[in-house]
Every structure is written in C-alpha cells, then in structure tokens.
Design a protein around this nucleic acid. Structure first.
Length: 374
DNA sequence: GACACGTGGCA
DNA sequence: TTGCCAAGTGT
C-alpha cells in the first residue's frame, strides 16, 4: 500500500473545496451592485427578482458594470416590471437604450418582454426555457437560471474563461477552449449556491483575476491555481489573433432650422445602429479617397465644414467629416423629421451621431441614459 | 465557424 | 495614438 501522493494534485480532488473557498471570499468581498441581492440579504429572505436579473444581464452583455449602472436605474424606475416594459413603445425603449450600444439588445429586450407579457408574465425557470427567448443566449440563460432560480447552471462569461484558463493553465486558445472551460465549471460549481458561485467567479475575474496585473496575493484560489506556478498568470487565457480593423470614411450633414431644430431620419431596423436615429450621412466607404465632401449632401445648402470626428465600431473605424448648414425650409423632406428644438437628447441617437451633432453645435448633446424632462 | 454588432476606459 | 478589453447573441 502506497501513501497518497500530494505532490501532484489531481484536477478535481477539491472541486467542492474550490467552490467553498470562492464562496467564503464572496461573502466577505462581493461587490454591491444595484441589481444584486447580497448573501446577507438572501439570508434575510430577500429573493432575486427575475426581471431585474434579466434586465441587468442583458445590459451587461459586452458592457462594463460602470456603464450599465445608470441605464439599469433609469429602466427600472421607468419600467419596474416586465409588464410595464411590455406595455412601453419600442421608440421609447430605443431612446432609453441610446448610448449603451449593441442596439439589437434593445430590440430583443422589447421582443422578450412582449413575449413574456403575452403569456403568463413569468420568466421560464429553466436554462432551456430561457435560452429560447430573444436576446438570451447560452451565457444569459445560465446566469438567470442560476441567480434567479437557483439552478446549478454553468455560467461562463469572459471573466470565468479567464479565471478557469489560469486555474488549469489551459493552453488551447479561446474560443476553441470554451467546451473545456465549461466542463471544468460544471465540475466545480456549487450545487447549494449556484447563483452566488456564478457571481463570485465573475467578481473574482473583475477584481482579482484581472486581464492585466492580476492580484494573485489576494486571491482565495491561489493555492488551487496552476498558472500562478508558471510565474506568468497574465499569459492566460491564450487567444486567437484578431483580424485587423479596417477604416471607413464618410460625411455627416447637420441641417439646422431657424428655431434650432435638427433634421433627422431613422435608420433601417436591422444592421448597424438598426432602428436608431441619425443625421443624414453619405455612404461610409472603405476607400481612403472616398468622396467625403459636400457633394454627397442630401440636398443643396450652404454646407460649412465643422471638423472631423472619429469613432470606432466593433469591426471598423470610422472617420466622419461633419458639415452643418442653416436651412430656411420648415417642412422636413420625405423620409426626414425635425427634432423638437432643444430636445435633441430626447432622440434615439447613438453616440456616433451625438458626436457629429456636437461637432456642429457644441454643447448641444449630453452623455448617459436618456432622462425625460418633467 | 465566421462575421456583424457599440461604446468607453485604460496602458 | 493604438490596441485591448468588458457579465455575448444572432445569423
């Protein structure tokens, strides 16, 4: 009979221990977030509201916590329940989402609220049921199932991918390593506190196991971590190289009426900035020498150049030449409409369009979620 | 699997 | 300035 060999620890002799250490750390060091029910409050009997969990998770898709906070509060104040959101107009939802990005999320959010409302007003309480709803993919379904319904679902986001890649020194590059990472999470997760386990993994990734300069000395899992032994935990996760980001150029035209109203139009429902509002622009071409002057203007006017704005989208960078003109007509041309004078921040304008308007009319736009005037 | 899809912060 | 990164989903 040979003594147990502790020199090389099997990967899963301590899956439960990892969860226990992580949850202990979470109880003491979790972040307080507007959509979160803390372990202490859960112990007092406070139950997570599936609507708030869903709303926050959709907003948090590819979006920072800091950016989401104000939008979450604004949405919750205006639409406190899924029924309220279902009763809202799509226009109002798009306006309230303006500035947060990935606008298909807002369309799917509204579609999902409509679907829930038209049925029994309740969210499905299983991963599969949630996964079938618009805007809810693998991650969000697992997150809602775990956090709102205590299902032992494997919640795998970018944070979890990084934490697990480091715990096990996974050399397979992302996104190829996703199945491997998911398998690890399924074995480690807490059956007793799946929601807190998921949030603890994400908090750990956000505050300790950060992309750069991870704070390993403070990590509750340092004794479990393989990457820390390598001396360079930052090396993980290994990722496939990203393709180069192309550039496009175009022109934007800010037509201003005598009373300050700005001429706008609505973009097509699908595609880039789908369903959002814009000032008229030329095509955005990949050609460096593309026509970006006033020759692409929607109509003849005394167009005056007022600078260049740069904006980076996910898959290309845009350089937009901005022109403005005072116009003397009062009826909007076909396909256009006038913003209410002084209410430009009430429109569903994506950030790139606010930048263009700001270049033409300094001081006219504001950042952050749309706030209705009293 | 590949690609489309926003924005802001940080080194 | 440039590139990377952040609680991904839909097609």
């Amino acid at each position: 009979m040979t003594p147990p060999d502790h020199s090389r620890k099997p990967a899963y002799d301590s899956g439960t221990d990892i969860a226990a250490r992580l949850l202990g750390w979470y109880d003491a060091h979790h972040r307080d977030l507007p959509w979160r029910v803390s372990p202490r409050d859960q112990a007092r009997g406070v139950e997570p509201d599936p609507y708030r969990v869903w709303l926050s998770e959709v907003m948090l898709q590819q979006t920072t916590v800091e950016a989401v906070k104000a939008y979450f509060q604004a949405f919750l104040e205006r639409w406190p329940t899924v029924e309220a959101l279902g009763a809202a107009s799509s226009d109002d939802v798009m306006k309230a989402w303006a500035g947060l990005g990935y606008y298909s999320r807002a369309r799917n959010l509204k579609a999902c609220a409509d679907q829930i409302t038209s049925q029994d007003g309740r969210f499905p309480d299983t991963e599969a049921g949630l996964r079938a709803l618009p805007g809810i993919g693998a991650y969000t379904a697992a997150a809602i199932a775990a956090i709102a319904f205590k299902r032992p679902a494997a919640v795998v986001d970018g944070n979890v991918e990084r934490v697990v890649s480091r715990l096990f020194s996974i050399e397979t590059p992302l996104p190829l390593a996703k199945p491997e990472i998911r398998a690890h999470v399924e074995k480690m997760l807490s059956q007793e506190r799946p929601g807190d386990f998921a949030q603890a993994m994400m908090d750990l990734g956000a505050t300790i196991c950060t992309p750069r300069r991870p704070r390993c000395m403070l990590c509750p899992l340092r004794q479990d971590c393989s990457a820390i032994l390598s001396g360079d935990p930052e090396f993980y996760p290994v990722k496939l190289a990203k393709p180069e980001k192309p550039s496009r150029r175009g022109a934007a035209y800010v037509a201003i009426r005598h009373d300050g109203a700005i001429l706008l139009r609505k973009r097509p429902e699908k595609g880039l900035l789908g369903g959002m509002t814009e000032v008229p622009t030329s095509d955005w071409t990949a050609r460096i020498d593309g026509a970006t002057g006033m020759d692409a203007a929607p109509f003849s006017a005394n167009w005056r150049p007022c600078g260049i704005i740069n904006h980076v989208f996910t898959h290309f960078a845009l350089e937009l030449a901005v022109y403005s003109a005072q116009v003397d007509f009062t009826v909007a041309p076909q396909g256009f409409f006038w913003s209410r004078p002084g209410w430009i921040n009430d429109e569903a304008l994506p950030t790139v369009m606010k930048k263009a308007i700001e270049a033409a009319m300094p001081g006219s736009t504001q950042k952050g979620p749309h706030k209705r005037k009293a």
